[in-house]
Simulated assay, not measured.
Amino acid sequence: MPSKPISAANAEHYTWGNNCDGWYLVRTPELSIIEESMPPGTSEVRHHHVCARQFFFVLEGEFTMEIERHEFTLRAGEGIEVSPGQAHQAINRSASLVRIIVTSQPPSHGDRVEN
């Protein structure tokens, strides 16, 4: 089956955390690429992944990523890598919506351990 263009408009949608949204752009046993949106004041629970290596890329807004108790503030066009085993937490401390792309290899769902 040939590939087709995909976006949040036609991708499989899910919700997570406190009013956050996600869309599966690529979902295979080897790779996961998702677009996520985080309203102002939202965050996820600190956790780590046993196997998954992740890359978070900011499309819109100001995004805080806490990795191993160190905070990094990222803006549109910036990204950060999280290695397997590193405790991390995505946070939107801003007053605006944040949109990010999260790439996980292998996929992170089912590989999460809360810290």
Rank of each mutant, 00 (worst) to 15 (best):
D21M: 05
G22M: 11
P106I: 08
L25I: 13
H88P: 07
I80Q: 05
V82M: 03
E66M: 14
S83Y: 06
I34Q: 14
R27W: 04
S94V: 02
A9C: 03
Q86F: 02
V58Q: 12
P106E: 07
M1E: 12
Y24W: 14
V113G: 03
V113P: 03
H48D: 01
G41E: 04
W16K: 11
L74G: 01
H13S: 14
Q89D: 10
A11Q: 06
V82F: 00
M65E: 08
G17N: 10
G77I: 01
V113D: 02
V98A: 09
G17M: 09
V113F: 05
H13N: 12
S3M: 09
G77P: 08
A76I: 03
G77A: 06
R112D: 05
F55P: 01
I34L: 11
P2E: 12
G85Y: 00
P84D: 06
K4D: 02
E60Q: 15
E71A: 12
I33Y: 03
D21K: 13
S37C: 11
P84E: 05
H48E: 05
F55C: 06
S7N: 08
A87R: 10
I101L: 15
D111A: 00
G77S: 10
D111W: 00
Y24H: 15
V58M: 09
E68C: 09
R27I: 01
A11V: 03
K4A: 11
T28L: 06
P5G: 04
I67N: 06
F57N: 13
M38P: 01
E60A: 06
E78S: 12
F56R: 01
V58K: 12
P107D: 09
G41H: 09
N18K: 15
I33C: 13
S83G: 00
E12I: 14
A9N: 13
G41S: 07
E30G: 11
H13F: 12
I33K: 04
K4T: 10
A9V: 10
D21F: 00
L25K: 09
V98G: 08
L59M: 14
F55E: 08
T103I: 15
C20D: 07
I6R: 13
V50A: 07
V26K: 13
A95N: 14
